[in-house]
Design a protein around this nucleic acid. Structure first.
Lengths: 210, 210
DNA sequence: CGCCGTAACTTAACGACGTTAAGTAAAGGA
DNA sequence: TCCTTTACTTAACGTCGTTAAGTTACGGCG
């Protein structure tokens, strides 16, 4: 009796179509453009049908967001094989800014928009697992660099270091997304900015002689 | 015949009351809470009265924003007297993160929200004047450090350097605002993070022997 | 003084939004 | 064949930014 399975599959397909439509709207037109009614139009359902699959609009966006967190972590995982932790940090920095600059709308939702604290572990990302959690990857690499004595004396807190490195890269991406069109200052190229940031951060934390 | 002057003054007073009410709502309840109807309630006018003084909601927010840009620049200007450009950079960094962390809602509007490109020079801030333009202050300080030969060889682009320093500090503030409530990682204190960031940035750009 | 234009404001309304309540139709097991 | 469950739609509510139309008060001018 495969009817139950078929029902579930069909349900999952509609769910997937909703996510797909939301993602397209989101990528091409930005956060504000994602409207329950527009999503519904795209998949030729009524707006309220979405509520049979998602609690509210926020849930739809958060699900997209979660998928992106995992995509980012996967991107990092591909770097994980590099032996030298400092070089690995540099490569990860490059991957991070690339990710943000290539997916500005996603990045904005992921890192630039305050969300209500994510209550339970209903999030799809498995915290602490470097394969799915990009922060865990970064912290693990910092710990390796620390253990190998590659960093300046006085630096010993892997979390603090990871958060600072992250913040530096985030600053480059976030300013680009929020202020790139602002003629306030003569913006240098994103590659120049992210390159110098990586350089400055690494030089700022490694032992002198490198 | 001072009637015309009185009319203008009364008009300006209402305008100021609108801004004041908007600012209060904005600071205490965040961006989303600023509603034309709520502003109107606070000053005991009808919602549409606001449109006699401002083109739209965006204009109200942008006016608040402009005032904050000048406030930030004024905060910087008080630092301007420090002779040593590197020390001045450090002090400015501290002032910047303080400003952002103390006024998260303003900071978010100023630096974390993409705005339509500001068409004309109707902005209140006078670009290029370090007294009103915080970026100009930063760039001028970097230029001084460059001219004094205090920075690493190879670094010569004051704009690129200023943008990178700014990005680093922005990253600390912006991550705090957007992600501080996220249990994703064990956040270190904001003072530790902004302190290390300043330290890392400065060490990353100054000549080795300092 | 009395009219009249004008400026400041209000009331009413429009269309769009997220979301909920109530209704409908189909499909599958008994 | 009926009945329950499931998937969906239609209608509606309250809120939003904003516009159009109406009202009231007041200073200038005959």
């Amino acid at each position: 009796m495969g009817t139950k399975e078929r029902r579930e599959r069909e349900r999952a397909e509609v769910r997937e179509k909703i996510l797909e439509a939301a993602r397209e709207l989101f990528v091409s037109e930005g956060y504000e453009a994602v409207t329950m009614r527009k999503i519904a139009d795209r998949i030729e359902y009524s707006p309220t049908a979405i509520y049979l699959h998602f609690k509210d609009k926020e849930s739809v966006l958060r699900e997209l967001c979660d998928a992106d967190f995992i995509a980012l972590a996967k991107k990092f995982a591909r770097i994980g094989r590099i032996a030298d932790p400092i070089l690995r940090l540099k490569k990860a920095a490059h991957a991070y800014t690339d990710f943000g600059l290539e997916n500005p709308n996603h990045y904005r939702l992921m890192f630039m928009t305050p969300h209500p604290p994510i209550d339970k572990e209903e999030s799809a990302v498995e915290k602490g697992n470097p394969e799915e959690d990009a922060y865990a990857f970064l912290k693990a690499t910092v710990e390796e660099a620390l253990a190998a004595g590659r960093l300046r004396p006085g630096l010993d807190d892997a979390d603090l270091l990871a958060q600072t490195l992250w913040a530096g890269l985030h600053g480059v991406v976030a300013l680009q997304i929020a202020k790139a069109n602002d003629p306030w200052c003569d913006w240098r190229s994103t590659t120049a900015r992210s390159g110098l940031m990586t350089d400055v951060l690494v030089r700022g934390i490694v032992r002198g002689e490198e």
